[in-house]
Nucleic acid binder design. Structure first.
Lengths: 116, 116
DNA sequence: CTGTATCCTAGCTGATACTG
DNA sequence: CAGTATCAGCTAGGATACAG
């Protein structure tokens, strides 16, 4: 099914893919989701070091967008100084498969561009 | 496996995901790949109408990048006027799974944001 | 049909500094 | 620790026109 869908495909699927990318696009979004996904629960500074190259400003901004889209949840713990943790929402967790696929493909891709 | 990887995840995977997005990011790239994938072989003007909203300039530009990354192949057929067709390369076809996942997720996502 | 060439602007982005 | 504020440069992307 996942294979021969390419023989019967249509505009609906293409638009669906575009819809998905609307939420996931952005230089860092998928990496951020990955970080939270792989560790299940993650703090701001954790993600900052997980995702190499991202600035705190960008992280802050993209986290907000992901939260608006209901993909992640932000929880403030009232310690001193304050602690904030991010989790995937149930909805966000539906992205796991995609994340895993992307990670697999990304590792193969790295081999292709560097390796051979 | 695809599930509990989230319990043992690491920076390598996050970077892999980022690598993947490096190639696939851009407002239209995934949609373009989808179009070619679903129809197996596609012309410039076909893609232009498949991917609603894209301009010829963007299509041209992103097609070039995808070609450079060896994901698609461009073939010129010497008719009058000239015909050009695009196919996924064998390597590009390795993205099928991801495309299908994204299409599935995108359709669910549309329900979530419009439906309920 | 399949693109290129210009022009133009919103907003993305990084760097740096600062706050509660 | 978890962000916000500000500045400035870049570039992604759209509109339009043109070319082979």
């Amino acid at each position: 099914m996942a294979d021969n869908i390419c023989l019967v495909g249509h505009k609906k699927e293409i638009m669906a893919v575009h819809d998905a990318m609307d939420v996931l696009s952005g230089k860092w979004k998928i990496s951020i989701i990955s970080s939270i996904c792989y560790y299940n629960e993650r703090r701001f500074s954790d993600i900052l070091s997980d995702v190499s190259g991202i600035s705190n400003k960008m992280l802050s901004k993209e986290l907000k967008e992901l939260e608006v889209n209901k993909l992640i949840k932000r929880s403030v713990i009232d310690t001193q100084p304050v602690t904030v943790k991010y989790n995937l929402t149930e909805y966000g967790r539906t992205l796991k498969t995609i994340i895993n696929n992307l990670a697999d493909w990304g590792m193969e891709h790295r081999k292709v561009i560097t390796g051979r």
